[in-house]
Amino acid sequence: TAGVGSLLKKIGEEDIHNIRIISHDVVEVLRDMIPDSSLSRVLIYFPDPWRKARHHKRRLIQPEFISHLCKKLKPGAILHCATDWENYAMHMLDVLQGEPLLKNTASGFAPRPDTRPLTKFENRGLRLGHGVWDLVFERVSS
């Protein structure tokens, strides 16, 4: 796909060798390919907000997904999410705060970390006058 092709081009330009690309459904990848307690950091930037209320069930950040994801995170691992859709940001905050294996590193939303790249989706949101909300949570010991 175009996105994977663009990523491969950048990887070649940057001469990066410690990367794996999987173009597949993330729920199945987590379930079938990622060992428990193996991830140090997960970055979920600008997932589809599914704006219509009847489609909210399709949003990636849901309690069941986050519960499963937490099993894959090492204690102390970071989960960083960002969105430019306020309604989804509030939903994400509720879901992440409701997960007992996660601890918010901020009081509510986090300031934008310098380590997060400025994405085309963020640029688009900023041009449209949207805010951007970052959530940075840490996996606690069970």
Rank of each mutant, 00 (worst) to 15 (best):
10 K>W: 02
80 H>A: 05
8 L>P: 01
19 I>Y: 01
12 G>N: 02
114 D>Q: 11
4 V>W: 05
2 A>K: 06
15 D>H: 04
116 R>V: 12
124 R>L: 13
140 V>L: 14
39 L>S: 07
118 L>N: 14
136 V>Y: 15
73 L>S: 07
72 K>A: 05
5 G>W: 03
138 E>L: 13
77 A>K: 10
56 H>K: 07
88 Y>C: 02
41 R>T: 13
90 M>Y: 11
40 S>G: 15
54 R>E: 03
107 S>N: 15
93 L>M: 10
141 S>N: 13
75 P>Q: 08
8 L>M: 10
88 Y>H: 09
97 Q>A: 06
131 G>W: 11
9 K>P: 00
52 K>D: 00
53 A>T: 08
113 P>S: 01
48 D>H: 03
9 K>M: 02
32 D>Y: 03
133 W>E: 07
47 P>T: 05
130 H>W: 02
88 Y>I: 09
38 S>A: 09
13 E>A: 08
62 Q>G: 00
91 H>R: 14
27 V>S: 05
127 R>G: 03
94 D>Y: 10
53 A>N: 04
101 L>T: 12
116 R>Q: 09
92 M>A: 03
8 L>H: 03
128 L>M: 11
36 D>G: 03
22 I>N: 00
29 V>K: 12
68 H>S: 08
61 I>G: 08
71 K>W: 07
66 I>V: 15
79 L>E: 14
29 V>N: 00
123 N>Y: 13
5 G>A: 07
91 H>T: 12
68 H>L: 09
132 V>Y: 05
63 P>I: 01
26 V>E: 00
59 R>L: 04
67 S>Q: 06
95 V>W: 04
73 L>A: 04
127 R>D: 15
9 K>L: 09
118 L>K: 14
94 D>K: 12
139 R>F: 12
91 H>W: 15
107 S>D: 15
88 Y>N: 02
7 L>A: 14
103 K>E: 15
128 L>F: 08
33 M>R: 11
74 K>E: 05
10 K>V: 03
69 L>K: 01
75 P>I: 13
46 F>P: 10
142 S>C: 06
63 P>K: 01
110 A>M: 09
29 V>W: 05
70 C>P: 09
72 K>Q: 12
57 K>A: 09
7 L>Q: 00
74 K>L: 14
68 H>D: 04
75 P>G: 06
94 D>E: 13
59 R>E: 08
135 L>H: 06
